[in-house]
């Protein structure tokens, strides 16, 4: 007999992450006087690209053996989709490119942290076998197994801390480095926590970690470009 059903916590947290991220970005962009319709266009594009990116990552990782409709969701794919959307819209709306970049990069770890709560509740992307404090065992229709290390919960906490650090940098005199700092911290945090995931067992560097290395190098370039921005403004004076 069916006891009942619930909406998947994964779906709820994913939707919640998009909502919270959307509100955060809207507040930041409105502070920069970006017109509402440009905020709307960029969000429409970014939501589509987050959804597609998260599934496309799984399609590509499977070697095109699954269709987009049947593919699972990969959070790193969603991040890649978001960054692609920000870059594409920056090419269209040149005047607001820097502000768009800063706002979306700042909101990114917050969205990721909220979405990871869903992963923790459902049991996907679970950690290595572990029976110490806070170990989690899954016993539902969706997932059985354990005890595992709660790597999804750790990721959620770490990325929300990264977001708070980003807010601190944004509100400080070093605001121009916000994007670079957030991307650097996200790359390091994701790279390190991948070692605690069960699917990493037996691998030296996983596909996700190679992408993190790419983000790390990108953040170095961002630091350099952000530093040069100040020099260029001084020269014009």
């Amino acid at each position: 007999m069916t006891e009942g059903f619930r909406l998947s916590p994964y779906t709820c947290t994913f939707a919640g992450a998009l909502l919270v991220g959307g509100v955060t970005v809207t507040v930041l962009l409105r502070r920069g006087n970006v017109p509402w319709r440009y905020i709307g266009y960029s969000m429409f594009l970014n939501v589509i690209l987050i959804l597609y990116g998260s599934r496309m990552y799984s399609v590509v990782a499977s070697g095109f053996k699954v269709r987009l409709w049947d593919a699972g969701i990969a959070s790193l794919g969603g991040v890649i989709g978001l960054l692609a959307g920000v870059i594409i819209f920056g090419c269209i709306y040149d005047e607001g490119k820097a502000l768009m970049w800063e706002s979306y990069i700042l909101a990114m770890p917050l969205m990721y942290g909220i979405a990871k709560v869903g992963c923790y509740l459902v049991g996907c992307c679970h950690g290595i076998e572990y029976s110490g404090p806070l170990a989690v065992t899954y016993d539902s229709e969706y997932m059985q197994g354990g005890p595992y290390f709660p790597v999804q919960l750790l990721e959620s906490i770490v990325f929300i801390i990264v977001f708070l650090i980003g807010v601190g940098v944004y509100r400080s005199n070093g605001r121009k480095y916000t994007g670079a700092v957030v991307m650097l911290l996200c790359a390091i945090a994701k790279f390190a926590q991948e070692f605690l995931r069960e699917e990493h067992v037996g691998k030296s560097i996983s596909g996700s970690q190679w992408i993190c290395i790419g983000f790390f190098l990108w953040s170095i370039v961002l630091f350099y470009k952000s530093g040069n921005k100040n020099v260029q403004i001084q020269k014009q004076k």
Partner: peptide
């Protein structure tokens, strides 16, 4: 009716719903 569910629906519903059956 659980026995009425075909594979197409069950595959789609698994992602959306988290079901408990007893």
């Amino acid at each position: 009716c659980m026995s009425c569910m075909d594979d197409f629906l069950s595959g789609r519903c698994d992602f959306i719903f988290w079901n408990f059956y007893k």
